[in-house]
Design a protein around this nucleic acid. Structure first.
Length: 567
DNA sequence: GCCGTTTTCGGCCCGACTGTTTTCAGTCG
């Protein structure tokens, strides 16, 4: 049982109620599902503390359902509805363009209950011709089935999983059964999505260590269990491998199990070229190990500088390390601000004061509060008057607060490239981020020109989540990024690196490309609630994966220097 | 079903887009 499972059940309930034509309950269940799925802690912990009702969107009825589910593993409301509508809504939700109503229509007409049934029906072209479906719907379903299933099913977003991972590792460290416990694999490389968790440890009592590990509460199922390697299924639905290695070769093992594969293949080739052999136990000349204790030793012995885990993608980092020309990438502690956040004045869940306190807890020196502008009505965007009074509130707070607050806006770039607020209002802002949210399915040239017009306006400081992609949900905009990068450079407009897990936008490869144009970057959590402020770490990870030195990241400027950027 | 300095009852984001309609339903954000 996990937060995600519970959230999916509530979403199923919402879907079924919607099919039944129930008016408002679906919305309530969806809201509760959203709250639960973005929780940083296990829902059963909240239940034990008796604090279920304090969760946003959880009232008497839903909290009873949660309690029932935690206690019995079942939820009667869910079971009853599911019996009436035996449809795999959870699976269908992953397919774009297939909502509850159409899923029900497919079930009613063709007895399609799950994704496999759908696949079969699509192959036989059975769906075109159904009422409400035509040839195009069928083609679209085929396409979306292909392109969105995989990533959703097999990988998790690291931004959500990392605290859970570190909690597991933390409890292992506390047990004192291990000398070292570290995360390896793609999680260590801080990849946006991860397919499993690799943990590496050293221990004088490996049997007890393995025993302790398999009894952790997060482990649902043991796949294999041995003295040096154990594989389990975690409660969040990912596999996890724990390897216990000899302390003497911990560095070599970390190197080996951190990857990625291509990076390691190239290192092994280099080793062979030097008459050496590299494996998880060390770098060997004949039978003699010449480096294995630390990763640094291994890299140095191969004739190169240590390469940070975030860079290990075999995209030129090895060559740069050999030439001793790797960039000194920005450190997690050098990002001293968050430049894109929301409060409940637009679509956030916490007050300005709460968000400021949250940012202060993370050690930020300043924070830009960037609520939506008026045209994004879905997000309760602010108009001139509301911004004016909101900004006065910020000025008041800045008189006394230790942490500084920037007057910001996530500003709609309208269909014709004009901006959603007048220049006069924007000049009063400290930080304006232009954003595309609506009418984004334009032809490449039109959409590019629209964004260029905003960049050249002289009124925005940055471009929010530039590609607009959402991992596993929505593809990136069709934009001519070379033109965008050039314009950003010549107009001194930053590109945002949005650390909100689904966004992770700009993606690291584009960051690297943009850097070559001399563009600067603004890092942000895009937090809509205080516990999402932690996503700044994911933004920093992307900056590092994109080879950014400190000087490219405007969040590293101190408050005074930052204000000089003001347009 | 949840929520509350407009409310403990009566509201609950609503407009754009798409494909299927021949005036609209479903989905999305």
């Amino acid at each position: 049982m996990s937060n995600q499972d519970l959230a999916q059940m509530f979403l199923d309930i919402a879907d079924i109620l919607e099919i039944k034509g129930v008016q408002w309950e679906p919305r309530a269940y969806r809201k509760a599902a959203l709250t639960i799925s973005t929780l940083a802690v296990d829902i059963s912990d909240i239940y034990r503390q008796g604090k279920l009702m304090e969760l946003e969107g959880v009232g008497p009825s839903i909290s009873k359902s949660i309690e029932e589910y935690i206690k019995t593993g079942k939820m009667s409301k869910y079971e009853k509805l599911k019996k009436e509508y035996p449809i795999d809504f959870t699976g269908f939700r992953k397919i774009q363009g297939l909502g509850p109503k159409r899923a029900y229509a497919l079930y009613k007409e063709l007895k399609i209950r799950n994704v496999d049934d759908l696949k079969a029906a699509l192959e036989k072209n059975k769906i075109r011709g159904l009422e409400g479906f035509g040839e195009k719907s069928e083609e679209q379903l085929k396409h979306n089935l292909e392109s969105f299933m995989k990533v959703r099913e097999e990988r998790k977003m690291l931004g959500y999983a990392i605290d859970y991972f570190e909690d597991i590792v933390g409890r292992m460290r506390k047990s004192e059964l291990f000398e070292d416990v570290e995360i390896a694999g793609s999680a260590r490389r801080m990849k946006e999505t991860v397919g499993d968790l690799d943990i590496l440890a050293t221990s004088k009592r490996p049997k007890e260590g393995m025993e302790f590990f398999t009894k952790l509460k997060d482990i649902n199922e043991i796949i294999v269990k041995g003295d040096t390697k154990t594989s389990v299924k975690l409660s969040i639905g990912l596999n996890c491998d724990l390897r216990i290695v000899d302390g003497k070769c911990f560095g070599a093992a970390m190197q080996y199990f951190t990857g990625n594969k291509d990076h390691n293949v190239k290192l092994r080739k280099i080793a062979i070229g030097k008459g050496l052999k590299l494996n998880e136990y060390g770098l060997f000349r004949g039978d003699k190990s010449i480096a294995s204790h630390t990763e640094k030793e291994v890299y140095n012995a191969l004739g190169m500088d240590l390469i940070e885990p975030e860079l290990r993608e075999n995209t030129g980092e090895i060559e740069a390390a050999q030439k001793r020309s790797l960039p000194v990438i920005i450190g997690y502690d050098q990002v001293i601000s968050d430049l894109h956040t929301h409060t409940l004045d637009s679509d956030g869940a916490n007050s300005l004061e709460e968000m400021i306190a949250g940012a202060q807890r993370l050690g930020h020196k300043y924070i830009a509060v960037t609520n939506h502008s008026k045209s994004l009505r879905i997000a309760n965007g602010l108009d001139e008057a509301r911004f004016s009074s909101f900004n006065k509130k910020i000025e008041k707070i800045n008189e006394s607060s230790g942490i500084k607050v920037l007057k910001g806006v996530e500003l709609e770039i309208l269909k014709d490239g004009s901006l959603d607020l007048p220049a006069k209002v924007l000049r009063e802002m400290d930080f304006a981020i232009g954003a595309l949210h609506q009418n984004t399915k334009m032809p490449r040239k039109e959409l590019t020109d629209r964004l260029l017009k905003a960049i050249q306006s002289g009124l925005i400081n940055a471009v929010a989540h530039p590609t607009g992609r959402k991992i596993g949900e929505r593809e990136a905009f069709d934009l001519d990024f070379q033109k965008i990068f050039e314009a950003c450079k010549s107009n001194d407009v930053s590109l945002e690196i949005d650390g909100y897990p689904e966004r992770s936008d700009l993606p690291f490869d584009l960051v690297k490309e943009a850097k070559s144009y001399g563009v600067r970057f603004s890092l942000a959590s895009d937090a809509h609630r205080t516990d999402q402020l932690r996503f700044i770490r994911m933004a920093t990870a992307i900056a590092r994966r994109g080879w950014l030195e400190k000087k490219y990241v405007i969040n590293s400027l101190d408050y005074r220097q930052f204000l000089k950027l003001k347009r």
